[in-house]
Design a protein around this nucleic acid. Structure first.
Lengths: 243, 243
DNA sequence: GAGTGGTCTAGACCACCCC
DNA sequence: GGGTGGTCTAGACCACTCT
């Protein structure tokens, strides 16, 4: 394991990181599971514990793995509490931060729009499930979501299963389809509410709304979800830390 | 340096990190400067190179220091290219990403509003400079900023100096006052343009705008700037990565 | 070639968790 | 007590930059 070529040099810990990621993609360890101990991985990959450590550190920094001292290292899961809200950056301005209630509006199957095709790197003619739902904070509508999921990846997604699931959408996709979201890119604009959205959100048409477009990625940076959220921001804000 | 008490245990590298931060606060090394080599710091603090390394790694991860292999470790500066745009998350949707032109509208001195007092942790009655400016992408107005800076910290801030400065606001504050921003918290809402803002931004009143409220922090997490930006998002987006 | 950061190793010991 | 991750050390060697 010492062969390191000078041009296009790749550190050992980086190669280990890739190997671990491949095991995650292959489903060798599932969300919530403990992965083997650092010593075990070191002996499996024939490197020192320190090198495995550095690879795991990187993955933990990306919230793909979670370290727990004295217990082990675990595959991050959307089922765990405190992780369910990981991608939700819109929160009420009031101090009380309660997880929003979700109301499923519709599920349909359709040809993917061009933009979805492009962003999710799908073949022309691919179909997607289009899910519409409403999130409410303290009983009042806050976010109207439209979610596009490739049918090929989420075969047989059913309205009933979705409706009966408790918890976040990503928790559902993880437990039902083994697809775990690890990262997302968002583009945000301010738009005027159209008739349909205004009615759903309980505001006047033309009310300014936050429009949050998102592409979410799973292991190996594969894009697997497109989503557009329309948010009423009179009593909520999109919160972000920049450094 | 080996005395470690069990309750409220603090790793050595964390203590080293604090010592380095204190040197930054004291101005021992200025933005753009190289800090001493890892070996030098290790001998100064009487710890191993590895421990210094871990402290520097953490600070580099926070974009407070910048490592350059073969050259040394440097204090991050807003004067460096590629760093000037660090806090600017609003960019044109067109591929061409050119730094926006800034037009200074006004500079005045006034009692700080209550919200600014609270967020910047100022004593009641403190005064702030209130700066208004307009950022333009490709010649068309995109962002209308209102910036509050404590007078106590930025003594004698002059309109002329500000107008003559080339480059970003944070580059100006760093070079003129030795205050370097390292982090910011933003709260974003969608609002309707008022008469004044609409006129400045060249849009119709009631046009939906992105309102980005920001508190910026310097070394030691001290809040030193409040800012509100109103953005036209017809051809721009606020871009964010979440993980 | 000298100096810097970057990688990798091996070993000792500590803090935490659970049996 | 035994396993896990977390810290700290010392030393060897590699990659990069400048002179």
């Amino acid at each position: 394991m010492k062969t390191i070529a000078s041009p296009s040099f790749r550190p050992l810990y980086d190669q280990i990181k890739i190997l671990i990621t491949q095991s995650l993609i292959a489903g060798e360890w599932r969300p919530g599971d403990a992965i083997p101990s650092e010593m075990e991985l070191a002996s499996r990959f024939q490197v020192s514990q320190g090198t495995v450590r550095k690879a795991i550190d990187a993955l933990a920094g990306e919230n793909i793995l979670v370290r727990r001292q004295g217990k082990g290292t675990f595959v991050a899961s959307h089922a765990q509490e405190r992780t369910t809200t990981r991608f939700l950056r819109v929160a009420p301005d009031s101090a009380v931060t309660e997880y929003p209630a979700s109301e499923l509006l519709s599920v349909e199957r359709a040809r993917a729009p061009d933009e979805t095709l492009r962003l999710l790197e799908l073949r022309a003619g691919s179909t997607v499930y289009i899910i519409r739902r409403l999130l409410k904070y303290h009983g009042s509508p806050a976010i109207l979501d439209e979610i596009h999921l490739p049918c090929a990846l989420f075969k047989g997604l059913e309205e009933d299963a979705l409706r009966n699931h408790k918890g976040s959408m990503y928790g559902f996709l993880e437990s039902q389809y083994g697809v775990t979201m690890i990262r997302a890119e968002e583009h945000i604009k301010a738009v005027a509410a159209d008739e349909f959205s205004a009615a759903r959100l309980g505001v006047a048409p033309l009310t300014p709304l936050l429009r949050v477009d998102r592409v979410a990625f799973t292991y190996g940076d594969r894009p697997v979800e497109w989503r557009r959220g329309l948010c009423v921001t009179t009593e909520c804000s999109y919160i972000n830390e920049v450094s």
